[in-house]
């Protein structure tokens, strides 16, 4: 018994130390965001030795008169559109694959699974050329339109996995009551797929929020900047002097992700597992 307890204690000791090491960089960043610039790199502890809110005020002022308020609004706007797009396109495709019977269904599903593994590099150059010809560079179209066309197959896969497990009898009952496939989708399958919808929403949120590459590619107008673009630009503009302000805005940029994590942790974990286990 004594031995088992000491094993258990050792296990927890390892986990606690590892957890601390993992969180230390994040905690240090948050602490530094409340510290004065001159103190930041002298301070290894997780408590600011000269606490101030000045960094947040200074950082929020943003770039050339455009505040971080604008950048956050832009990011949220893009995320909201992407979520709507992914939900519409992926739930429709998911419904088709999971519940409907039509010619070449298996073929299209296999094609969809292959696109999951495709490096984005093979499509990005022609996409850019086309968006450029359509004069859609420096608009949000290139970031948002692909979601409305279900380019992120992972979510279709997620929807298919989920919708497959909804009992068939429900469809048959609805059919007997005179519901067509469209009404079954809208009144039956979608309401029953809420967990998959939530998972899709939060993953779209996280991935879009962090998707620096497309934003860098398509957005160069300061007024359209996202939080990620503004943060990167901040370093170039402010040079190596305003680290406190930078960390303050970095911290703020992670708050929405962290909030999503706190409130929807269960769906996040389930989403990862669904993608991983049944794949």
């Amino acid at each position: 018994m004594l031995q088992r307890n000491s094993v258990r204690l050792a296990k927890h000791a390892v986990l606690v130390v590892l957890g601390f090491v993992m969180l230390y960089p994040l905690l240090w960043m948050v602490s530094s965001s409340f510290n004065e610039d001159t103190e930041i790199f002298r301070n290894v502890s997780l408590f600011p030795n000269a606490p101030t809110l000045q960094n947040y005020v200074h950082g929020w002022a943003g770039l050339s008169g455009v505040t971080f308020g604008r950048f956050f609004l832009n990011s949220f706007f893009i995320v909201a559109l992407c979520v709507v797009g992914n939900l519409i396109a992926c739930s429709m495709a998911g419904y088709a694959f999971a519940r409907l019977d039509f010619a070449l269904r298996r073929v299209w599903f296999a094609v969809m699974m292959v696109t999951l593994m495709l490096p984005f590099h093979v499509t990005v150059i022609p996409q850019y050329i086309v968006f450029n010809h359509l004069e859609l560079v420096n608009t949000y179209w290139p970031l948002v339109l692909p979601k409305f066309l279900g380019v992120e197959g992972f979510f279709i896969f997620l929807m298919v996995q989920f919708m497959r497990n909804i009992p068939r009898e429900l469809d048959e009952a609805a059919l007997a009551d005179g519901c067509g496939p469209v009404r079954i989708y809208w009144y039956l399958i979608l309401p029953l797929s809420v967990p998959a919808i939530i998972t899709t929403t939060i993953f779209t949120f996280i991935w879009t929020w962090n998707d620096y590459f497309s934003q860098l590619l398509y957005i160069s107008n300061l007024h359209l900047y996202t939080v990620a673009l503004a943060l990167r630009q901040f370093v170039d503009t402010m040079g190596q002097t305003s680290w406190g302000a930078l960390f303050a805005m970095s911290t703020l940029s992670l708050v929405p992700l962290f909030a999503v994590f706190l409130f929807f942790q269960r769906y996040l974990i389930e989403g990862i597992v669904a993608g991983g286990l049944k794949g």
Partner: peptide, 17 residues
């Protein structure tokens, strides 16, 4: 009906992939 539900994705597959 199957293809109607698949339409957005098919369009994306064609035009964006």
């Amino acid at each position: 009906i199957g293809y109607m539900f698949l339409a957005p994705w098919l369009l994306g597959l064609l035009g964006l992939t």
